[in-house]
Design a protein around this nucleic acid. Structure first.
Lengths: 340, 340
DNA sequence: TCTTCATGATCAAACGCTTGAGCAGACCGT
DNA sequence: ACGGTCTGCTCAAGCGTTTGATCATGAAGA
């Protein structure tokens, strides 16, 4: 057995500490938890502390929870931990906030599989989680899994009819912010490459774009709203249309579309932002920060969604069936040319 | 209170089920767990099952664990859940394998902060995890956090001197596979853009590349091994050098470098793979699959690392201080031109 | 009729911890 | 000298389970 594998016997219990210190279990418990109004003499306290130290005692969180009738667990079920950094950011945000309040995250992923999902939820319930955060990697409407009704639930990045409180990104505001980036730079003919798959992102961002133009006194030309697949290929395929539209700037449905657009433009020998200003959406680090030129975009607040989710769960937050929207802040890089 | 918030009172216990069914707690326990050699009559069993159903009883996993003296938890500490999809894939792999064996993942992230990390480990220990998976988002050597010695540990995607068993990607094999992709296509003058920061990836992949060339009877020309920053910018900056080297194919230290290289080549009006064949490393989905043309690369087996980590933890696996290497399989797309 | 002996179910202890109640002794005031 | 108050600590019940030991019942075997 290697050196590092030493010392891993059965965990030390309160009882053992008590024996070693020559006091009762209660006394040790009192000392270990630094109970305010526990009356323990200095000498005894010191002896107990010493014993705890010597034995390397670690409280048993499970037993503690049992006594208190409530665990310090928060369950988080995600549908796609692996595929994108998005879920990771939600997890991270939830993690940090949960910890801050003395809670621990129990992570389960359902990877789109309904059965796995039910199992996951069952498992969370059996661990008597304080509540459950149900999250999706892209903002969408969901069918609420039945098991969820057994626990306090908050939906993160998704929502359901008649469902519990949902924490979602403010797509409208994001769309507006994206367009505003171009408007502020003096653009007036601004195209919008939207995705074809219906979603809150599709409708919300477009509406935001329209609102921004309207507010700026720019007429919304339907010819400037283009359809495309929401991946790189879609952006690439839209180059012709964008150029034909006579736009000087374009908002893309997401960063991947923008990336495809970059490719297509470059192939035609056009430069960004000299020949066309481009704005993305999502602020997907690996893309946005490293395209040439850096892509100005609007961030999807995944981390904040996680934080807000935990907060809503623990604090009660707004009533069920409501939506709590989180702002999508613009991120300025170099893909927008100022016409001023 | 909304409809979905109903019915969330204190969880139903065995005792309540027993009362409802008119039997003892033991009987219910026996039925609920389908104990093989428990002698319970058909009638009673049915009655109990009915009561369980009616009351919506869920066993309390915490209490179960208490009795058994061991929890079904596996702790996973990661250093960068949020930033890349890599950690997500490790988590996912670990999740799936843990579940398969009836374990649950307790995820903690340290985000590089030593104090947070110690807290995280403490928390895991207090929850009496069965073992801990300590993972990093890129393959590297680490200083083993002290707390880890208190639990069975497996390092994932990292290793330590005198540390516990480490599960890591086989960089050497990966480097070889990358080069082989070009060799098989008939290339003989193959460049290698390596990173400048020392790491197992840097040394391992290069060694693999050399070995592949040697095996193919191709002399290794030091002038073909280039240095670059390991992000898009590095690849972009290497274009000149690669072209000057007279190489017909190039292995990049990672997909991001390849992405930068794509950019640089395109700016010079050169086509991939017609003018230059490119091979990446990492198989970062969002990049590799969507570049134009699709990037042939070598996959980093993060998912498998997670799976193998859990397996090693639960099955004992090889001795401590050893390394378990996981293969990096090539992923063929369209960035390599066949010279045959 | 009186042991056996399955069968069906219950008892009670234990897991590690918390906590209100209780108890012995020291100290105070009268 | 005696009740009262404080201090320092222990008791014991209880959290929701599991499980080996135990017990009551009726049927089979002698």
């Amino acid at each position: 057995m290697s050196p590092v594998n030493e010392g891993r016997r059965r965990p030390v219990t309160l009882k053992e500490v008590a024996a070693k210190a020559g006091v009762s279990v209660s006394a040790v418990s009192l000392v270990a938890n630094e109970k305010k109004n526990a009356r323990i003499g200095e000498a005894t306290r010191a002896r107990v502390l010493q014993a705890i130290e010597d034995l390397g005692y670690r409280p048993n969180a499970l037993a503690k929870n049992l006594v208190h009738g409530q665990s310090r667990f928060i369950g988080l079920v995600a549908d796609a931990i692996a595929s994108t950094p998005f879920a990771g950011q939600i997890i991270h945000g939830a993690q940090v906030e949960a910890w801050r309040r003395g809670y621990v995250l129990l992570v389960a992923n359902s990877e789109g599989n309904a059965e796995a999902e039910n199992q996951a939820i069952s498992m969370l319930l059996e661990h008597k989680v304080h509540g459950i955060l149900y999250s999706t990697w892209y903002h969408r409407q969901i069918e609420l899994p039945v098991g969820l009704s057994e626990a306090e639930t908050v939906l993160v990045n998704c929502f359901a009819d008649d469902g519990p409180l949902a924490v979602v990104p403010d797509e409208f505001d994001g769309g507006r912010a994206a367009a505003q980036l171009l408007i502020d730079a003096g653009h007036e003919r601004i195209a919008f490459i939207n995705t074809v798959t219906p979603s809150p992102a599709r409708e919300g961002r477009l509406a935001g774009y329209r609102a921004a133009l309207a507010d700026a006194g720019i007429a919304v030309d339907p010819a400037l709203v283009l359809d495309a697949d929401s991946a790189q290929e879609g952006g690439y395929a839209s180059v012709e249309a964008v150029l034909a539209s006579g736009a000087t700037g374009v908002c893309c449905h997401n960063d991947r579309v923008a990336m495809g657009l970059y490719d297509g433009l470059r192939e035609r020998g056009l430069r960004i932002p000299a020949d066309l200003s481009v704005v993305g959406f999502d602020n997907q680090e690996i893309i946005a920060a490293h395209l040439r030129p850096g892509l100005s975009t609007v961030a999807l607040p995944h981390y904040e969604l996680g934080v807000a989710g935990v907060r809503a769960l623990l604090d009660g937050g707004p009533e069920a069936s409501e939506r709590l929207t989180i702002a999508c802040p613009p991120v300025v890089r170099e893909s927008v040319r100022s016409l001023a």
